[in-house]
Each structure stands twice: as structure tokens, then as C-alpha cells.
């Protein structure tokens, strides 16, 4: 899995393109609870990744993930740049070149912890962590890309709707943040689902 440049290219391309395709939806979600820039920011990051796709695909999996993280840090802006950047960079630092399922779960766990530290947050505060944490739990049950993982991610994103935001700009809305899906939870769910489907083949 992902041991040749062609498969890495198709995974990276599909996930980046999916983010771009959903930019308007992410922006609409962010207009409800934040500053309305999540879609534009994520799209800019995904475009930067696509612009470098040839070089990225040639790198080993860990190096490619680190480079994607750095591109997101430099290009996305907002809070999501450092948060997603940290996620991908930590994945890259934690994964060996040919990861087995134990490596994958451990790396996902390390990346989740790093995002929690970067955002000074934890699950339950209506953030991307509310998708990443349930996704990790699902991976612990079954570390392979699966329909169950996609369902877990989608349900977790839905579950942020009744939550009250306690981090980021949405937290200023207090009670009014209730009733809207968290944009970061949605973008995490999109990426996990697309990556899982591509890896499932």
C-alpha cells in the first residue's frame, strides 16, 4: 500500500481535489459559526499540494506527509493551517516507510495528540478533534480503511451540530454555535472518507 509513486499520487490528488470540490460548503459552514474563510483557506492549501504533486509522489510516504504538512502550514493560514499542518507533519514523523497496521494506528494517535497540543484543545469542544478522535477509536478496532471508518467520521462530524463551541472564533458565539456543523470537523471527515475509499481501492 502506497509503496509506489503512482498510488501515492492518486491518494494525494483525490484528497486534495475533494477538499477543493467542497470549498464552498466548508465556507458556508464557517460563515455560520466562524469567519467564513475555512473553505477558501483549505482550497488554497490543497492547490499548493496539487501544484507540487510530481515531487510529492516521488517522496517516500513519511517524507511526502511531512512536505504536505509544511505546505499546509505555509499556505492555509487561519488556525487550520498550523492544525492540519501539525497533523500531517506528525503523521510523517511517526510513520515508517512501509507501515503496518500497528504503525498506522500509532501514527494517527501521535498526530491527534499533536493537534490537541497545538490547538490547546480536546475532543468535545466542537472542533476537528471531534472527528479525529472517533476515527482513531475506529482504527483501533479495525486499522484498515473501511466503510466503518467512513461512517464513523461522517457520524462524528454530524455529532458536532448540537455541540457548543469552546475553541476558536466559534466559541465567541456561545449558545449560538449550537445547531451548526463544525467546519473543521467536516473537512476532517471529508479527508478521512476520501483517503479511506481510495486506500480501500
Amino acid at each position: 500500500m502506497l509503496e509506489d509513486a503512482a498510488s501515492r499520487r492518486s491518494l494525494i490528488e483525490a484528497v486534495a481535489q475533494d477538499v477543493i470540490d467542497h470549498a464552498e460548503e466548508l465556507t458556508a459552514l464557517d460563515q455560520a459559526v466562524g469567519d467564513g474563510d475555512h473553505g477558501v483557506n483549505m482550497k488554497r492549501g490543497a492547490e499548493a499540494v496539487l501544484a507540487d504533486i510530481d515531487a510529492l509522489a516521488e517522496k517516500t510516504l513519511p517524507e511526502a506527509l511531512k512536505a504536505i504538512g509544511m505546505a499546509l502550514v505555509m499556505k492555509v493560514g487561519g488556525a487550520s493551517g498550523p492544525l492540519y499542518g501539525t497533523f500531517f507533519m506528525t503523521l510523517g514523523k511517526s510513520l515508517p516507510e512501509k507501515p503496518n497496521s500497528t504503525d498506522t494506528v500509532a501514527a494517527f494517535d501521535a498526530a491527534l495528540q499533536a493537534v490537541m497540543a497545538r490547538g490547546k484543545s480536546h475532543p468535545g469542544q466542537k472542533t476537528m478533534l471531534d472527528v479525529l478522535a472517533p476515527a482513531l477509536e475506529q482504527l483501533k478496532n479495525d486499522p484498515s480503511p473501511s466503510e466503518a471508518l467512513c461512517v464513523a467520521a461522517a457520524e462524528a462530524a454530524e455529532a458536532t451540530i448540537p455541540m457548543r463551541a469552546e475553541r476558536g472564533r466559534a466559541s465567541f458565539l456561545g449558545e449560538r454555535s449550537i445547531g451548526h456543523m463544525d467546519p473543521g470537523a467536516r473537512s476532517s471527515s471529508l479527508m478521512i472518507t476520501k483517503a479511506s475509499k481510495i486506500l480501500e481501492g
Binding site: 469567519d35 474563510d37 477558501v40 483557506n41 502550514v73 505555509m74 493560514g77 487561519g78 498550523p82
Partner: peptide, 12 residues
């Protein structure tokens, strides 16, 4: 401002 000059921040 972000890298495109819009609202936001840029590490660069």
C-alpha cells in the same frame, strides 16, 4: 493577512 492578501494569517 493571508498569503493572498485577504483576512487571516501567514506563517511566512
Amino acid at each position: 493577512g493571508d498569503t493572498d492578501g485577504g483576512l487571516g494569517t501567514s506563517v511566512e
